[in-house]
Design a protein around this nucleic acid. Structure first.
Lengths: 225, 225
DNA sequence: GAATTGGTTTTCGCCTACAGTCTACGGCGC
DNA sequence: GCGCCGTAGACTGTAGGCGAAAACCAATTC
């Protein structure tokens, strides 16, 4: 028993710590990039960002460094950081990798999932469909992300989850503009996926997820033209 | 035509630029980690490393930052960097992800490969076997890496290649101690893989690569006990 | 003897300053 | 008028320094 004080565990609100500045800068920049406030190809000047965010250059540099390794910005030596410009080819490759990772996650989820897990998935699906019916695009996209994240969690492979999280976020960056077009159909497929997971049918879960992600990929390709 | 000088393209050796210091620090630290000079769990003190490498703390910080995002070190806030301690579970997950990525790469390679590509693979395989015969473990491991990298290159998916490169390097970190045990058998499997690629047989290439990487995974598991 | 508390030291997080390098622009020669 | 060179500006790369938080250790109290 750790707490020798008579206080209950959650009584002390953990003393909201701001957390490392570099992380907050990272989050801020990522937000600016994903919302297109910083456009692809744009030159990111360290001192400018630092001044704008009210911090020094150092945290900005570290944030840019991290964004670089995750593929959000390109760091050209002695020239600075530029917001990454996604090519159509790269987007397609990213989507195909996503298909691979998500399909595997679906398979593992089907192998591991219990009744309570399935219930949780159903709940997420309900909310997602509700958002679609209400024309709440942002909400639907968010629920979609949470659903996929939940499947990934059920897969129980943290390494896989880490890679998928990166890929997914970038995919969503490219994909958000076309998300609007893909409403109900997507959630019907989600239902099929959950059914397959509930049946513990690894083969079918893999196939459904593959079809699902490939579907969005095809939609992206058609949009390119 | 860019070169208006009459000089051939490669004549000027690009004026050997030292390149960003942080990258060299990164390479140096990665070398130290993979060679076990810095042991898992060890606390990495910035000023210590900086002094040892003859640079300031800043490049060291940036290198550690990058190593952190790639999973080599754990960056605990306000505490510093610690060499990542791989758990058995994590190693297993990493190996399973590797299987997934490499199998897909093999499939794509089989779909794309031409005669010259197959020849290049054969050449790498020859050298690898030569290294094994000479009991040159480090050389064999290196050739193994280059062979897999070549397959990945043939797959033609840079995103996939990027992920696989990270995973592979970490796998090799865990795996190096047991590499010695897995000599000839591994290279026989390589031959089978190349044959499948030469036949443009995607199914078989996938299966062979999957068996190959799963084989090393099993070997690792047995070693755990 | 065990737990706590206070001070001390180490180390990180961030800021500021300086040097090197690349880019852009204006003047000069052809 | 056209192209080259030199200079000025801006930005990045690196170094050093200060304040603060965490870990460590010893003295003290129960």
């Amino acid at each position: 028993m750790l707490p020798t004080t008579g206080l209950p565990q959650g009584a002390v609100p953990k003393l909201e710590r701001p957390g490392p500045l570099r992380d907050r800068v990272y989050e801020a920049l990522l937000e600016l990039i994903t919302t297109r406030a910083l456009q692809p190809g744009q030159h990111l000047v360290e001192s400018e960002l630092a001044g704008h965010l009210g911090v020094s250059r150092q945290p900005v540099r570290e944030a840019l460094q991290r964004l670089s390794t995750e593929g959000w910005v390109d760091l050209r030596p002695a020239q600075g950081a530029f917001v990454h410009e996604p090519t159509d080819e790269e987007a397609d490759q990213l989507l195909s990798v996503r298909t691979l990772l998500e399909a595997e996650a679906a398979r593992l989820a089907a192998a591991n999932a219990g009744a309570d897990a399935v219930a949780a998935l159903e709940k997420l699906c309900d909310e997602g469909e509700k958002a679609v019916d209400a024309d709440d695009v942002d909400g639907a996209v968010a629920m979609n992300a949470r659903l996929h994240a939940k499947v990934m969690e059920l897969a129980g492979n943290t390494v896989l989850a880490g890679l998928a999280a990166q890929v997914d976020r970038r995919v969503r960056w490219y994909y958000t503009p076309v998300a609007r077009q893909r409403g109900h159909r997507s959630w019907i497929e989600h239902r099929e996926l959950i059914a397959a997971i509930a049946d513990r049918d690894e083969e079918r879960a893999t196939a459904v997820m593959r079809a699902h992600t490939e579907h969005t990929r095809k939609m992206y390709r058609e949009r390119e033209k």
